[in-house]
Design a protein around this nucleic acid. Structure first.
Lengths: 101, 101
DNA sequence: ACATACTATTATGTATTGCAATATAGTAAA
DNA sequence: TTTACTATATTGCAATACATAATAGTATGT
């Protein structure tokens, strides 16, 4: 899969998985990987980024089967950002679509 | 406009403008700029890249009003590449769409 | 004890775009 | 004729985001 296509969109895909419920990193890796080819390393970098940017907060939680999980929770700022970026993405698709028609 | 969204797609937009007719660099800059924010520098890098990759050939032609124009012509290889990449782009959009729904 | 699955992290490399500057040839204006 | 502006092409450096690969810790099953 063309690596470049994902640039800028993966963030949104991750954030979008957090709209309804908090999720932990490994879980997100699997969710995203079902559709797009992404490695754990890439995912965790994104998670670090969106945390540094204040779009998510995190907390640890014990697990029955394995190491503790770090859960990611979408903040209001993150919700706003996601909404605006999704709109911008759709706008971009429309314009690019004209050039690719 | 989110810079990252364009990664990998600008190539296709440029190549797609060459399907029906040869065009010169400056002309392409204007065509693309009508829809997407791109600077000349970026466009010319793309043109250099797709030439190095053998997707286009070039030739100079005098102009009535200004310096000679460098025209870009789509090769068979370029046509194939464009077709495949467009398909891959659509496939990517479908998958990303699921994650963004 | 060992392999395996689950979970998280980090270092280094690569590709693409942004920004800004340079350069040259005409044309219009002062 | 000097100036300025438009048309055209090119290049260098910085910033960003993804890929790859390696590391590490915990629990479970054999």
């Amino acid at each position: 899969m063309n690596t470049q296509f994902k640039k800028g969109v993966l963030d949104l895909c991750v954030l979008n998985q957090l709209v309804r419920e908090d999720r932990y990193g490994y879980e997100l890796t699997e969710l995203i990987s079902k559709e797009l080819e992404v490695t754990a390393g890439t995912l965790y970098l994104i998670l670090k980024r969106i945390k540094d940017d204040g779009y998510v907060t995190t907390y640890l939680q014990e697990s029955d089967s394995g190491p503790a999980r770090k859960y990611y929770h979408l903040t209001e700022k993150g919700r706003d950002y996601l909404q605006k970026q999704k709109a911008e993405w759709l706008e971009f698709l429309e314009k690019a679509g004209k050039l690719l028609a």
